[in-house]
């Protein structure tokens, strides 16, 4: 095929556009890749020197307890009376509508309030994650007040991710958590209208609190079942799942073959059928 000079000139424009597009695409994706590399290198910092099941590289305790300031109890009381007491009673002793909170520990209060589940809008349905009504210090004040009423229950954990092992976390997560929350942490519906929520918005403290207190239908995992170290490992893995290594491209919501089937049929076969429609003839 021979081209005239003019043709060559015209050729250059779309070619340049195509090259520019490919380069831009590559740049875009390689940025994603470098982000992935970054996150994996930061991961490596935490675990590179350790093997699964061994020590975790940091001498610091994997989980420390948040000390609540007793001076905030008064504020906590005020907030509790204003927002919680109508259901849980004036002294959190419980009513016919809501359970007794005494002795459940600061972690329980912090988990339910900081995830926005409490105060509850509809007591008949499973409490859903909402934007929290209280800021951090108000939440801690309520926790301080309720835990001052009776002793017992787990305190608020603070997770030191530097002392946690990602790969140990994977093993523990797949054993203890994946059956409900799914192996990618996306969550799913359980029987009778309840569900295992997605873990993608949880903070390290909230994850550890959930493990220790077993909110709602979730089982409780005490210190003799999962050590503090193991909880920290799980937290580290859940944090990883919130932004996992999607080396293969768009993650499709991490819900597995259902989404893949739709993409394969609608995008894959769909595009090919359109191509076929172009190539082949139509009805005569």
């Amino acid at each position: 095929m021979s081209f005239h000079k003019k043709t060559v000139g015209r050729l250059l424009v779309p070619v340049a556009l195509g090259v520019a597009a490919s380069v831009a695409g590559m740049a875009l994706f390689s940025q994603g890749a470098s982000a992935a590399t970054l996150s994996s290198s930061s991961v490596a910092k935490g675990v590179s020197s350790v093997t699964y099941g061994g020590t975790r590289g940091s001498s610091k305790a994997p989980i420390t307890t948040l000390k609540l300031n007793p001076s905030t109890i008064k504020l906590g009381h005020t907030l509790f009376v204003e927002n919680c007491s109508s259901c849980h009673g004036d002294a959190a002793q419980g009513t016919s509508r809501a359970p007794n909170l005494q002795g459940l520990g600061a972690a329980t209060i912090d988990f339910w309030v900081s995830t926005g589940r409490m105060p509850l809008a509809d007591p008949t349905a499973q409490a859903a994650i909402k934007p929290p009504r209280f800021n951090r210090s108000q939440t801690l004040a309520i926790a301080a007040y309720v835990s001052s009423l009776a002793s017992g229950g787990p305190p608020i954990p603070q997770v030191n991710l530097g002392a946690a092992s990602l790969s140990a976390g994977e093993g523990l997560f797949s054993t203890n958590c994946a059956a409900c929350h799914t192996i990618t942490g996306v969550g799913d519906a359980l029987a009778d209208g309840v569900y295992a929520p997605s873990l993608y918005t949880a903070t390290p403290t909230q994850i550890a609190e959930a493990v220790r207190t077993g909110p709602g239908n979730m089982p409780r995992f005490g210190t003799s079942n999962l050590s503090n170290q193991q909880v920290a490992d799980i937290v580290k893995y859940v944090k990883y799942l919130q932004n996992p290594n999607d080396a293969g491209g768009i993650g499709l919501g991490h819900v597995g073959p259902v989404a893949e089937g739709f993409v394969g049929i609608l995008i894959g076969l769909g595009a090919l059928m359109i191509a076929g429609y172009w190539i082949g003839g139509r009805a005569h």
């Binding site: 059956a179 409900c180 029987a191 009778d192 309840v194």
Partner: peptide, 20 residues
């Protein structure tokens, strides 16, 4: 593996075909 324990309702759910 029937690994899905719903603590509040005391039920075990099978993740594959949802037997309760």
């Amino acid at each position: 593996p029937v690994g899905l324990y719903q603590e509040l309702t005391q039920q075990l759910l099978c993740p594959c075909h949802q037997s309760l």
